[in-house]
Structures are given as C-alpha cells and as structure tokens.
Design a binder for these strands. Structure first.
Ligand code: ZN
Ligand code: ZN
Ligand code: ZN
Ligand code: ZN
Lengths: 162, 162
DNA sequence: AGTGGTTATGTTATTAAATAACACGGACGT
DNA sequence: ACGTCCGTGTTATTTAATAACATAACCACT
C-alpha cells in the first residue's frame, strides 16, 4: 500500500483524527448545503479519514466492502463529490487523496486552495497555509486568466525522514 | 488530441517557438553537463516543442515514428531525462508535458520551480514566475521539511476562452 | 585493438488509474 | 400516481505508467 523509498523506520504516524466527529461535521455540512452524504460517499470519506497519509483511489476501492472490492466508478464518483464539498483534497502528483486538514463547518463548504508538503520517503503529507498566492492571482489577472483553482505541491523529505 | 470543454473557437495558438534554436541550445546544454542528447530524447523534445500546448505521453508515443508508434518505455525514459535536465515540465494535474518557457542555457540546466496557468477550455498553458514560494520554504523549514521540488498549478480560463 | 564497467535502448508483458455508456432505483415536488 | 432529477450499479474500455530482462552503444583504461 504505502511505498517506501528507503530502508529506515517510518512508524511516525500523522496527527490522529477524530473520525466520528469529522463524519458528523460532514453530515451537517451536507445538510446545510442541500447535498446528500450517501452511503458510498460516507464510506469513502471514512476510509480516507482513517488512512495514515494520502490514500490511492484503488486502496479505497479495495477496502470499500468488508468482503470484496467496490467498482471503480462508485469510488471515483464519491471522491469527486467529497472534493467538491471541500472535505478532501486531491494530490495531483501522487494520484492520491487526503482529508482536508481543516474540519468541515458550515462556513467552510467550498473547495479551498491548499498546499502540501509531501514526503518522498514515508509518504506523509502536511497541509499548510498558502499565504501569498495573491502573486499568482495577480499575474493571472495581468494575463486575463481567470483562476478557478490552485494546486501547490512541495515534494521532499519530512523531519523524521531526513 | 486536445480536449475541448466548450464549443467556441480555440484557434489562438501559443507563442511560436523557434524549435531549431531550442534543439541546438539543448544540445549545448547536454554537452556542457556531460549528458547525451540521444535520438529518442531529441525526438521527444522536438515533438513537445512543436506541440501547441501541453502534450500527453501517449501523443508523443503515437507520433514518435513516421510510420508507427513507439514503445511506452522509450518515451517515458526520454521524458524523465528531459525533465531532469530542466528542458520540460510535467503538468501533474493533466498528466502532460510542456517545454520549459525559459530557453536552455548553461546557467540554467537544473529543474527549476515552475508555476502554470492552465486553461480548462483550450488546453493552453502559460508558465509564470513564482515569486513568493519563500513562504512555502519558510513554513517547510519551520516543520523541518526539506523541500526538493515545488509544483504550482492554477486552473481556470485563459483570456481568449473566457 | 581488447576488456570491462556503465549507461542507454529495445522488447514483452503487466500493472495502475480513470472514464464511457447505459440500466436501475430512490427521493421529491406536483 | 406521475414525471423528473439525482445518485447508484454494472460492464466494458480507455488511458497512463512501470517491471523485468535482453541487447547494444559508449567510455576509460590497458
Ligand atoms: Zn484543506
Ligand atoms: Zn517522511
Ligand atoms: Zn520552466
Ligand atoms: Zn483557453
């Protein structure tokens, strides 16, 4: 499941998430938005929340049912929904998904710009605030480009993997 | 080849590149770096330079030979090489490749941080300067994260597609 | 020239990632 | 109950990338 580019210890878990609280918050968010947090969406979100680090779509597919795997479209549709709700982020350079670090609430129900620090080594990701994307917005405006979504990805080595 | 999300005109070509000059510069760069710009690498770079906008790996594969397609590993290896040389950039969110906007020279032979404005509509990309990644570097440093490479991608609509 | 190490390529096969297309079913307003 | 919208189930296919191994070119040194 998780790929290791090296031999040393990788048993440094990410900050533990209160999964139940997140699921409840997501439910409230969807209710407030007039959207339905259906079974496959809930299950997909639950798996991503419980995963240690970014999760591949096919890992979600494999673990979806206790017995067998889910069909790809089921999961990809759920992933799209969750991303649109701002509950998860897609990590483009990894083809993977991770729960948004900011807990969902009624004020925050739109996909927001996110930046990530991605460790080559242990596979962990850290969502960080992106302060100065105003620069990009500014350059875009100058070019007449309407920005809809920005992805920022920094790859390297985390503290414990250096 | 190029996907269109809409019905209007897309015949606004990107800035024309002097392909021959770029190939010569690449050759000089490789020579200076002790690397070999072999036939498949040259051919791959030539195709990407000549393409109007970001190019998919399998489009390179299809057009590689006048008669038939190339084998995937041939092209993927060339793409990796060109990316390491800083001659092309990979656009993570598109699974595509584009020639670096900065012409190669001996001073500039390392993969550099790049940011792109990617039009949903016509598929064009614009490489822009990324001024304030210092913020990311700063946050990373605070977390003990060693940054090796940063990717920034802004998706939206270009001037002519709005 | 000959030799050995290194690097790049050719080739076959497989794996991984994502979507198309269409049928079915439940929710909901009228 | 009716039609409509939205979400799901299902099958099949497309797209993207790599594994593994054999062959060939390049280079440094003798
Ligand atoms: Zn977030
Ligand atoms: Zn790490
Ligand atoms: Zn560049
Ligand atoms: Zn456009």
């Amino acid at each position: 499941m998780t790929q290791h580019a090296c031999d040393h210890d990788h048993s440094h878990d990410t900050t533990t998430i209160n999964v139940d609280a997140r699921l409840k918050a997501a439910e409230a968010l969807c209710l407030a938005s007039g959207e339905r947090l259906t079974a496959p969406r809930l299950r997909t979100y639950e798996l991503i929340l419980g995963n240690n680090g970014p999760m591949k779509a096919y890992d979600v597919i494999d673990r979806f049912h206790p017995e067998g795997a889910a069909k790809p479209p089921t999961v990809y549709r759920a992933l799209s929904f969750l991303e649109q709700m701002g509950l998860i982020h897609r990590i483009e350079s990894l083809n993977a998904f991770v729960a948004c670090a900011t807990p969902a609430n009624v004020d925050h129900h739109h996909p927001h710009t996110a930046a990530f620090l991605l460790c080559d080594c242990c596979g962990q990701s850290e969502e960080i605030a992106t302060l100065s994307l105003a620069d990009i917005e500014h350059q875009a405006q100058h070019l007449g480009f309407e920005v809809k979504h920005i992805t920022v990805e920094a790859k390297g080595r985390c503290k414990t993997c250096r």
